[in-house]
């Protein structure tokens, strides 16, 4: 368990280093301005990139010292049972699947319009989360879409994206 935490911290430290690197690289695209002050538009970003890189190095080093890279022996009995690590591994694709519904909505809403898109979103997510495939789910999706359309479009007067149908 401790090795798993160290490995997780190692991955986190490396990601922090990568973010610092990418951010520093992007600073190069910031244009110079004649209106700029002594610190300049790149001043704080540079400092932040250095600080984050420093944190990333410390986090990585700390994870390595905690045994992230040392092979962890695993008892046979434990190996045969589903571990917490395996649960976490299966949770990631499921969570990403959930997020995919949001992404699909962003792609679909300018095409099919707000009302059908939001109905599809509610219905699809409900089914993904275990709702039964029956009229109740369908009615909930349609009712929910009408409710949101009423609140946002009619009551608040916010123009939601229109598509081919609505």
């Amino acid at each position: 368990m401790r090795e798993h935490a160290a490995l997780r911290d190692l991955a986190g430290g490396i990601v922090v280093l990568v973010i610092a690197g990418l951010y520093y690289w992007a600073i190069g695209d910031i244009a110079e301005s004649s209106l700029s002050d002594d610190v300049g538009a790149t001043g704080l970003p540079r400092i932040l990139a250095y600080i984050l890189a420093g944190f990333g190095l410390i986090l990585t080093a700390r994870a390595v010292m905690a045994g992230a890279l040392s092979p962890a022996p695993r008892p046979a009995a434990e190996a045969s049972a589903p571990s917490e690590d395996e649960d976490e591994t299966s949770a990631l694709p499921r969570a990403l699947g959930f997020l995919a519904f949001g992404v699909a909505y962003v792609v679909l809403v300018p095409i099919i319009g707000y009302l059908p898109a939001i109905a599809l979103l509610i219905g699809a997510v409900a089914l993904y989360e275990g709702a039964p495939r029956n009229w109740k789910t369908l009615a909930t999706a349609l009712g929910g879409a009408l409710l949101y359309w009423g609140i946002f479009v009619k009551l608040l007067g916010v123009h939601q994206p229109s598509g081919w149908f609505f």
Binding site: L121, I122, A126, L127, Y128
Partner: peptide, 9 residues
């Protein structure tokens, strides 16, 4: 299950 859809929407 419905709550998930409604909250995301």
């Amino acid at each position: 299950a419905y709550l998930a859809g409604f909250i995301l929407a």
